[in-house]
Amino acid sequence: MSRITDLFRKKNQRVLNVYCTAGYPRLNSTMEVMKALQDNGADMIELGMPYSDPLADGPVIQASGSKALENGMSISTLFGQLKELRTTIRLPVLLMGYMNPVLQYGFEKFCAAASAVGIDGLILPDLPIYEFETEYGPVIKKYGLDFVFLITPETFPERIAKVDSLSSGFLYAVSSSSTTGKDKDLNGQRAYFEKLHEMRLRNPVLVGFGIKDKNTFETTCKYTNGAIIGTAYIKALENAKDINAATAAFLKPILGA
């Protein structure tokens, strides 16, 4: 059983997955940020691999990625930082990024390295279903990694059922068809969330894009298994002198701790 599956088996509701950018705010911040998230109540970590052309990311996460690239972050550097990942981090960890740098690194080499350091799953939004089924999915499975597909309010039920059958770990339900970081009326997406609930999907559902505080987190948790927070946390880290203190200050009001 993967760490992600085990998490949802133990805690099926109010799961909080927090996105952070590898190499931000400083090159060597990666493990410090992840440890702070673990120590302050996050249930899962989505570790973003910075890329120069991140199609789904809003300006805040794009800026964090640009800063990380300026700091010297690369996939090779990241795997070097993650060598001791499982000596300190017990939470499920996913790598989120885009196909271009992964293919440049070498897809199977990437999956092997991710598995070797203890990564649990991948989110690659620009990997099409057909290529996943025919070429990349078997490689991902070979190395014991979960793979998470994204769906949107415009995704047809047939496609939702299809990606649910292919995904493992959870489904990433984008709250609206836009980039990260924009304000969303989550209550206005009630019909979308209820549709997902009624479909009795095989995978748990986490909602991302627009989750930023206690109110948006609670709204999301009424209808799904939990939420993904990214942009708001990146903002909290931007000028942080003490990463753990900034993380605690950010998560405490959301979780009601």
Rank of each mutant, 00 (worst) to 15 (best):
F132I: 02
E133Y: 02
E133N: 07
E133F: 11
E133D: 09
T134I: 13
T134F: 09
T134M: 14
T134C: 06
E135G: 14
E135W: 13
Y136S: 07
Y136M: 13
G137Q: 08
G137F: 02
G137K: 10
P138T: 06
P138M: 08
V139Y: 12
V139L: 15
I140Q: 06
I140R: 07
I140L: 12
K141D: 06
K141Y: 04
K141V: 08
K141I: 01
K142C: 11
K142G: 10
K142T: 13
Y143H: 13
Y143L: 06
Y143I: 02
G144V: 10
L145G: 08
L145F: 05
L145Y: 05
D146C: 02
D146L: 03
D146Y: 01
F147A: 04
V148Y: 01
V148P: 01
L150I: 05
L150A: 03
I151H: 04
I151P: 03
I151L: 09
I151W: 00
T152Y: 10
T152M: 13
T152E: 07
T152Q: 10
P153K: 04
P153G: 07
P153F: 07
P153Q: 07
E154Q: 15
T155A: 05
F156T: 13
F156C: 13
F156Q: 15
F156D: 15
P157C: 05
P157Y: 07
P157G: 03
E158M: 09
E158V: 10
E158T: 11
R159D: 04
R159V: 04
I160N: 03
I160T: 14
I160C: 11
I160S: 06
A161G: 13
A161D: 13
A161Q: 15
K162N: 09
K162A: 12
K162Y: 04
K162C: 12
V163P: 01
D164N: 11
S165L: 09
S165D: 07
S165K: 12
S165V: 01
S165Q: 12
L166S: 02
L166G: 00
S167N: 04
S168Y: 03
S168G: 09
S168V: 08
G169V: 00
G169C: 04
G169K: 02
G169W: 00
F170K: 00
F170G: 00
F170V: 01
F170C: 03
L171N: 02
L171G: 04
L171F: 07
Y172F: 10
Y172W: 02
Y172M: 05
V174N: 06
V174H: 04
V174G: 03
S175A: 11
S175L: 06
S175W: 09
S175H: 06
S176M: 14
S176D: 13
S176Y: 14
S176N: 14
S177Y: 15
S177Q: 14
S177M: 15
T179C: 10
T179P: 00
T180E: 05
T180A: 06
G181L: 09
G181S: 04
G181Y: 05
G181E: 06
K182P: 00
K182R: 12
K182W: 08
K182Q: 14
D183K: 15
D185P: 00
D185G: 04
L186H: 13
L186I: 06
L186Q: 06
L186F: 05
N187P: 09
G188W: 08
G188D: 01
G188R: 03
Q189K: 13
Q189T: 07
Q189E: 13
R190Q: 14
R190I: 07
R190T: 14
A191I: 05
A191N: 12
A191T: 11
